Simulated scan of single mutants.
Amino acid sequence: MDFLNIRSILVCGSVTLFSGCALLQDSQPLSANNKNQINTAELVQMIKNNTERQLTQNDKLLKQNAQLKQQLTNLTKQIAEQPKSEPEQVQCHSSASETNGKAILGEVEWVYLPAIKKHLKARIDSGATTSSISATNIERFERDGEAWARFDMVHFDSALSVPMEARIVRTARIRQASFDKIERRIVVNLSLFLGEKLQQEAEFTLADRSEMDFPILLGREFLQDITLIDVGKQFLHAKYTEDKEG
C-alpha cells in the first residue's frame, strides 16, 4: 500500500468520524429552554384561539340583540298604528235602576199623576200593603152608575190643595200601627208614571197625610213582581217628561 492510499483512507475515516459526531449531536433530546419555548408558544396560540372564539360569540350575541330590538320596534309601531276602539258606553242610569227585568226603586221617588199633571214625591214602603195618597174633604158621588170620590189632594211642594176625582174600586179595612182601631178607607184607582218606563194603574187609599213627610206612599200591592227597593238611595229615576205621555 503506497502513501497516497494510506492518506486517502485516513481522510475518509476522519470525515466519517466527524459526520457520525454530527449525527449524534442532532439526535440528542431537546433542552429545557427549548421545551419552555414550545409550551409558551402553544399557550399563546391557545389563548389566541379562545379569544377569537369569544369574540365570534360576542358578535353573534350583538347581532341577536340588534334583531330583538328591531322586532320590538316593529311591534310597538304596529300597536301604535292599530285603530283605537271606542270605549263601550255604559248606561249608568239603566244599570242602577233595573235588574233582571225589574225596576229598582229608591226609598223616595218622583211620581207623576196625569190626572193633575203634577210630580209628587212618593215614599216607597214595602211594609205597607196598600198604597196611599193624601186626601182631605172626601165626598162620594155617582157617575154613569159607578161610585166615584171627589177630594182635595195637597201638593206639598207648593202647599196648594189640588181637587181630584177618581173611581172608587172598593173599601179597605186599615189598622194603623199606632192605633188599635180599625179604619175603613175608600180605595180609588189612579194611573201614574214612575220614571220614563214604569206606567201603571194602582189602587190608593184616601187618607189625610198632611202630617206625613210625603203625600204618596207606594205599598206592596204596587211593588210586587215589578220592582225591587234599594232603601239606601233616593230618586234613582228621573222625573217623567209630560210631553211623552200617551
Rank of each mutant, 00 (worst) to 15 (best):
Pro83Gln: 06
Ile38Met: 09
Ser132Val: 08
Thr205Trp: 04
Ser134Lys: 00
Ile138Val: 15
Ala238Gln: 11
Phe235Val: 02
Ala32His: 08
Ile6His: 06
Phe204His: 01
Phe3Asp: 10
Ala122Trp: 02
Leu160Lys: 13
Lys102Phe: 10
Glu86Thr: 14
Lys102Leu: 13
Gly101Cys: 05
Ala177Glu: 01
Thr227Ser: 12
Arg7Phe: 13
Leu62Tyr: 10
Ala172Gly: 02
Thr73Gly: 01
Gln45Tyr: 06
Asn100Trp: 05
Leu223Val: 08
Ile168Lys: 00
Tyr112Lys: 00
Arg7Gly: 12
Ile116Tyr: 03
Asp59Leu: 01
Ala159Ile: 11
Arg167Trp: 05
Lys197Met: 03
Ala177Ile: 10
Ile182Phe: 04
Glu81Gly: 03
Phe141Arg: 01
Trp148Asp: 01
Cys12Lys: 07
Glu86Gly: 02
Ile104Glu: 02
Lys35Ala: 10
Gln67Glu: 15
Gln54Pro: 04
Arg143Tyr: 10
Arg143Glu: 14
Leu194Met: 15
Gln89Cys: 00
Ile6Asp: 13
Leu68Val: 13
Ile79Asn: 12
Lys102Thr: 05
Gln64Cys: 03
Glu107Thr: 07
Gln37Pro: 00
Gly106Ala: 02
Gly145Ala: 07
Ser19Asn: 07
Gln82Arg: 13
Glu211Phe: 08
Phe18Thr: 10
Asp213Tyr: 09
Glu221Ile: 12
Ile38Pro: 00
Gly195Asn: 03
Gly246Ala: 11
Thr73Leu: 08
Pro163Ala: 04
Thr40Asn: 11
Val15Asn: 02
Asn39Trp: 11
Asp125Lys: 04
Thr129Leu: 06
Leu190Ile: 12
Ser178Phe: 06
Phe222Ala: 01
Asn36Met: 13
Thr40Leu: 11
Pro215Cys: 06
Glu86Leu: 13
Ile6Arg: 10
Asp125Cys: 06
Arg209Gly: 02
Glu183Ser: 09
Ala22Ile: 14
Tyr112Gln: 00
Ser191Thr: 14
Thr241Ser: 06
Asp144Asn: 13
Gly13Asp: 06
Ser134Glu: 05
Phe151Gln: 01
Asp125Ile: 09
Ala172Phe: 03
Arg175Tyr: 03
Ile104Phe: 06
Glu165Val: 14
Ile79Gly: 01
Phe214Ile: 00
Pro83Tyr: 11
Gln199Met: 07
Gln25Val: 09
Thr129Gly: 02
Gly232Val: 07
Val111His: 03
Val90Glu: 08
Asp230Pro: 00
Glu203Gly: 01
Ala207Ser: 11
Asn65Trp: 10
Lys60Phe: 09
Leu68Asp: 07
Leu190Ala: 04
Leu113Phe: 15
Phe179Leu: 10
Arg53Cys: 09
Glu201Met: 05
Ile104Met: 03
Ala115Asn: 07
Gln200Val: 14
Ala159Glu: 15
Ala103Trp: 11
Lys35Glu: 11
Leu206Phe: 02
Phe156Ser: 08
Asn36Gln: 14
Asn74Ser: 12
Cys21Met: 14
Asp59Cys: 05
